[in-house]
Simulated assay, not measured.
Amino acid sequence: MLTSAQPTSTTALLTEAAARRGLATAVLDGPATVGHLAGRPVHWYGGPLAAARIAAPLGLALLEPDDDWLARLPHEFTRRRIELTTLADAWTLRHPAFVKPPADKSIPPAVYPDGSRLPRTGDRIGPDTPVLVSEPVTFAAEYRLFVLDGEVRTGSRYARFGRLDPAPLTADATAFARRLLDALGDTLPGAVALDVGPIADPYDPVEHWAVVEANLPWFAHCYAADPERVLDVVLRAAGPAADLAEADRCFVRRPPAG
Rank of each mutant, 00 (worst) to 15 (best):
M1N: 03
T3C: 14
S4H: 07
T8A: 07
T11W: 07
T11H: 15
A12M: 09
L13K: 09
L14R: 05
T15G: 07
A17C: 00
R20P: 02
G22I: 00
A24V: 01
V27K: 01
V27M: 02
D29I: 00
G30T: 05
T33N: 01
T33Y: 00
L37N: 03
G39E: 00
R40G: 02
R40H: 08
P41S: 11
V42Y: 02
V42K: 05
V42T: 04
H43Q: 05
G46H: 03
G47W: 14
P48A: 10
P48V: 13
G59P: 08
L60D: 00
L60K: 01
L60I: 04
L62E: 00
A71F: 08
E76S: 13
R81D: 15
T86I: 11
L87V: 03
W91Q: 08
L93G: 10
P101N: 14
S106M: 12
I107G: 06
P109N: 13
V111S: 06
R117F: 15
G122E: 11
G122H: 07
I125Q: 12
P127T: 14
D128W: 12
T129N: 09
V131Q: 12
V133Q: 13
V137L: 15
T138Q: 14
A140N: 09
E142L: 08
Y143K: 01
F146K: 06
V152E: 12
R153H: 08
Y158M: 10
A159L: 11
G162R: 06
L164P: 04
A167W: 04
P168V: 08
L169E: 08
D172F: 06
A173N: 11
A175H: 07
F176S: 12
F176P: 09
F176N: 05
A177W: 03
R178H: 13
A183D: 12
L184Q: 15
G185P: 13
L188Y: 09
L188V: 11
V192G: 01
V192T: 05
V196T: 06
G197I: 01
D201G: 05
D204H: 07
P205Q: 10
E207R: 13
W209I: 05
V211G: 05
E213H: 04
L216F: 04
L216P: 00
P217W: 09
F219W: 15
Y223P: 06
Y223W: 15
V230A: 07
D232A: 03
V233K: 07
V233L: 01
V234Q: 05
A237I: 06
A238Q: 02
A242E: 12
D243K: 11
D243E: 10
A245Q: 09
E246A: 12
D248V: 09
C250V: 13
F251W: 02
R253A: 07
R253K: 11
P255W: 02
P255A: 00
P256W: 02
A257Q: 14
G258S: 10
